[in-house]
């Protein structure tokens, strides 16, 4: 049984033949589409390393079946920078050292982008910490992650205002 599904991945429309319905979105990205930026830390929804945006919402790609996502818009870590210009969250992660080994980092950044988009945490660090608690960082880069999000969010708001003006 093979299913052709339509996916928009990082802005690119593509039809992907799913020859095995067991394939998760994570394994599709990593093993078949050569998008290995998204990481597998547990494969069971327990670490957040596989976080991507599906239809603009952050989800664990390890617990999403690819076949069920027909028509979805997927954004991965490979799709957030504009050419050489980093997304504000990416830049802020570097600046605030919100990473060490870097393995959780793609998931953290996608989760952070999702969190900022949700717009519910505001500039309350406690809400950010809670909202980011689905992303384990075994290296313990949490302080930098929280700082990075606060900083990036503020910058994005400024830019947004700038655009609106």
């Amino acid at each position: 049984m093979s299913f052709d599904i339509a996916l928009t991945i990082n802005g690119l429309h593509r039809v992907v033949a799913i020859d095995d319905p067991r394939i998760t979105l994570l394994d599709l990205l990593r093993e078949r589409l050569d998008l290995t930026g998204t990481k597998k830390g547990c494969d069971r929804g327990q670490c957040g390393a596989c976080t991507v945006l599906v239809d603009d919402r952050r989800v664990n790609s390890c617990l999403a079946l690819a076949v069920s996502l027909d028509g979805a818009v997927v954004t991965t870590i490979e799709g957030v920078a504009h050419g050489d210009t980093l997304h504000p969250v990416q830049a802020a992660f570097i600046e605030n050292d919100g990473l060490q080994c870097g393995f959780c980092t793609p998931g953290q950044i996608m989760s952070a982008i999702g969190l900022i988009r949700e717009g519910l945490a505001g500039d309350d660090p406690e809400r950010i910490r809670e909202g980011m608690s689905g992303n384990l960082c075994r290296c313990g880069a949490y302080a930098g992650i929280t700082e990075a999000i606060l900083e990036a969010q503020a910058r994005m708001q400024l830019e947004h205002k700038g655009e609106a003006a």
Binding site: T36, G37, L86, Q90, A91, L99, P106, I109
Partner: peptide, 9 residues
Amino acid sequence: EGHLKVTGQ
């Protein structure tokens, strides 16, 4: 290597 890590490369 920050750039490589935050872009998934």
